[in-house]
Design a protein around this nucleic acid. Structure first.
Lengths: 198, 198, 198, 198
DNA sequence: GATGAATGAGGGTTCATTCAT
DNA sequence: GATGAATGAACCCTCATTCAT
């Protein structure tokens, strides 16, 4: 009788183990040993479920991206106008709480740096950014149309990239300059966007 | 006859060697060997001039910070109003050219991630950010005063942090999403700031 | 109702799995996982049927030796004189076809190298060689007696060893130098032997 | 003042360390640790002089091939006829003494097996065999011409391959069946060759 | 000042073997 | 009989750092 597969559960544990280890030590220094310890597993088991350490990182990126999407969609359902959805997007991205959220943000900052040198990471990072960019471009065009102005596609794309950059930069500052007040970012970014589309 | 000391020159070469190696491979993977090769020096010489690899990184941070200051001051001398200086600050930060500038930006992105885990790096990173923040706070208050509005210190600090975050985020995007148009950032950020202080 | 035992069948599958994996990756790199995959079985099942990996190798040697004996006996039944049997021996050993034969030859070459370091393998390898040597010695003495010459035992043994060495060497060359013509070996070896005993 | 390079000397020591470790444990089990111990060096130093373990193996193959060439050329200078050179070739290949020669033969047997699975090893192995084959083909044609017979190129090539196979097989037997008398091989092979070209 | 050989700890990964199911 | 998850030791390799020259 075969043992029931718990592979998906184990993979999840390992991915979270990497996130935790990365937030504390960076990707290179997040050793398989430290990931295993963080996940409460034996080191050998890591490589039973993932062929390479890079594969775990890729899985973590997917996980974080999905979680971010979920957070946005949760807020977006309550939004009626495109403008409300834009604001919901910014809130979802920047309303960062405590605990594992902080780890997730730290991990994402480190992922951004690894994207500089690791092609697989860079490609997936670009995909994630592109997806957000597309979402934002559409929302921006709709929202500007709602308020009676006309935002062309090129401008919308530039504005979307600016929004994304501001968010990524806020992650960086939130992670490394902890005494900076944390809630300002969403407010200011929202004002900037509203001003830009009106 | 004593050989004339070329220590400062050598240190500079080593620091630039690290910058180059980091832009390509990250900090952890920038081995002393690879730094030496990038600098055209022998591996042993590195540790004659720097006790540890971390010391080189600290020196690189100082170097990059100084270079940024110089770039700003060059533009700021031509500025007459505080508002002009604000715009000059943003231009200096975001007008990124080719070649070693690109390496510098990539290195700075990686430094930001290393600041998450390395206390020495984090402390210096925070110092650099704080210095920029102070500069910006002053300029923002002066500029708002120039246009007849009143920006209180707390607001000014939040706005300064937002500006810095946007710039750091732009570095991240410019480094890892190369097809994103590059010149939008300064323009949009300047508009946002002008709107915020008026 | 008890499940009918299929142990022998499973052991056979595993042994052939090792042969296939070895031909491709060598003995050390033929992992239990790869053997299982080649045999279409689960890794855990391997150790249900064999205590250690070495045991599978021993079983493979027995299998290959038996197959070789069968091939010889099939040809030898048609032979009338000792000389004919000698020729049949050489034909059986060197008439190597395609497919699993090629794998078997490759596996045997690798077994020969493992015999250098693994005592159990070496002992069995020596047994196999000794058995062939005895067969050949007898055939050589009979055949020389048939043609009216007298081959003493020492000479016969030396000649037998030479025959065996030539065959083993042909396996090596056939496996690693694939463009060498393949059919020459039997012909030349037969001529050499006929000349030596006449 | 730079330390004088001893790289070539160290490389030689490492190569001989691998030969010794391989003769005892095979290539896969010849760990870097065991190579280092056999060479009297620290493990880390191995990788300072060779990028990979495979590189050491390749260097060993070159070394063994060169040594074999030297042995032949030493004997060949005393030979006057092509036939004498042929005999010298066989003597050089099969007159295997004690000590490091035995290790060399064992190592070569193992290399032959590694050639089955490692492309780089196989390619070099084929080159070595091809070189010997070319030498033999020329000698065989000249020698047959000396005795007034005519050996065509195809036949010569087949005969050369047979000679090489017999020699490789003798290495195998000499290494793994130590009680087989050792000096027979050259004598019988020479007779076979002389018979074949006359 | 400068070289590059040398060290040894620690990294990711592979793997035979065990075992709960 | 059969499964596949789990373990831990050992592997090759990388590397910051040291040091004799």
């Amino acid at each position: 009788m075969a043992r029931p597969s718990n592979t998906e559960h184990r993979r999840q544990e390992i991915v979270l183990g990497l996130m935790s280890a990365m937030a504390e030590r960076g990707y290179e220094k997040a050793s398989i040993q430290s990931i295993a310890k963080a996940a409460g597993l034996s080191p050998g088991l890591i490589h039973y479920h993932f062929k390479t350490k890079l594969e775990i990182l890729i899985a973590l990126m997917t996980e974080l991206s999905d979680k971010a999407d979920e957070r946005y969609e949760l807020l977006a359902t309550k939004a009626e106008s495109a403008e409300d959805k834009l604001m919901a997007y910014i809130d979802a991205a920047l309303a960062l709480g405590e605990g594992s959220d902080q780890q997730a943000v730290a991990a994402w900052v480190i992922i951004g740096a690894e994207a500089v040198r690791l092609e697989d990471v860079r490609n997936l990072y670009q995909d994630v950014i592109a997806k957000h960019s597309n979402t934002l471009v559409e929302l921006l065009i709709q929202a500007s149309s709602e308020v009676g102005t006309k935002l062309n596609k090129k401008k919308a794309k530039e504005l979307a990239t600016f929004i994304i950059a501001s968010i990524q930069g806020s992650y960086q500052i939130a992670t490394t300059v902890p005494d900076a007040s944390k809630d300002y970012a969403a407010k200011i970014l929202k004002e900037s966007v509203l001003n830009a589309i009106s």
